[in-house]
């Protein structure tokens, strides 16, 4: 790849999907995607992930606000109908954009024709590994194989900005892990910016350097994955020993097993609290990103319900 990884910026972006002003897929999004990172794009169904991806890949324009994409260290540009930016941006939508009724290799040929950094060897290797028969038409492939075809296109394009929007749908676990492995391996060899949206957070959270959570068209948080992980903590030990540490924190979950409790808290424990907890014989654990995500998105929607 001869082009530096792309960064992206969105400023006050609004996308309306209906005639009414309240029908907004994105509702004032301001966000930066750091060049060269693997960024997790998390959100519930209909949160606006797909719309966000469509804007970055010039599939559509925002109703208002600005979308800017460009190489690290260079000026950013509006990607829409910008040939240089578009040829370097790859969006893989669920099940991929393919010719449904002609052979899969016809689709691959089209991508190979247009993509400046297409790697046919990589494509061939991955198709073999994921057992996709390119002589069949995508319509004749199973959902999982069709998704795998999309995943292969995304990686073989080697685009400085590559977006995978729920590309795993229908793929079985071995195929998904083969995809993650190929992603990490190719990313380290050919650094680029990767935006990965998934509902299978447990499987992918360690791939993320940054995490963006959007909910109802708004950015809930955008920060390094380590910081997100630090937003929660779990304590395990005797119930009455735990209670003093719970005070002043939001409890995400509470489980009891005989005299032992496990409490999941939102918010950090400071060093002194950690030391005291360890001293008291409590086990301190991490909270899976999945649990934090569920909490974050539930909370904001509940608040909105209350406001009505």
């Amino acid at each position: 790849m001869t082009t530096a990884p792309f960064g992206a910026e969105l400023r006050d972006v609004v996308v309306r999907y209906g005639r009414k002003d309240t029908e907004r897929a994105l509702d004032g999004v301001t966000l930066s995607i750091r060049p060269g990172t693997i960024t997790g794009l998390l959100g519930r169904n209909g949160a606006g992930k797909t719309t966000l991806a469509a804007l970055l890949a010039a599939f559509r324009r925002p109703t208002s606000g600005s979308v800017l994409v460009g190489p690290a260290g260079g000026p950013l540009d509006d990607p829409f109908e910008n040939p240089w930016v578009m040829m370097h941006t790859q969006l893989v939508r669920e099940s991929g954009d393919v010719w449904g009724d002609s052979k899969a290799c016809d689709t691959l040929d089209y991508y190979a024709d247009l993509r400046p950094d297409w790697d046919a060897d990589l494509a061939g290797r991955l198709l073999d590994e994921l057992e996709v028969d390119v002589r069949k038409s995508p319509d004749a492939l199973s959902r999982g194989k069709r998704s795998a075809l999309g995943a292969v296109i995304g990686l073989a394009s080697r685009a400085p900005l590559t977006i995978f929007d729920e590309v795993y749908l229908g793929m079985d676990a071995p195929s998904r892990y083969a995809f993650y492995d190929a992603l990490v391996a190719d990313y380290t060899e050919h650094p680029r910016t990767i935006l990965l949206s998934s509902h299978l957070i447990d499987e992918v959270e360690r791939l993320f350097e940054d995490v963006v959570v959007i909910d109802r068209g708004r950015v809930l948080l955008a920060e390094p994955a380590e910081d997100v992980r630090g937003r929660g903590v779990s304590l395990t030990g005797p119930a009455d020993t735990i209670e003093p540490f719970v005070a002043g924190h939001q409890v995400l979950a509470r489980q009891h097993l005989g005299p032992t409790s496990q409490v999941t808290l939102f918010g950090e424990l400071d060093a002194a609290q950690r030391a005291a907890a360890t001293q008291a014989g409590l086990e301190i654990g991490a909270v899976p990103l999945q649990d934090l995500f569920v909490h974050l998105t539930r909370k904001s929607s509940d608040l909105k319900e209350d406001a009505r």
Partner: peptide
């Protein structure tokens, strides 16, 4: 190597 480590444990190479 960082690459081997990242691919072996499926973690972000930067980490």
């Amino acid at each position: 190597s960082t690459t081997q480590y990242a691919t072996t444990f499926r973690i972000n190479p930067a980490t």
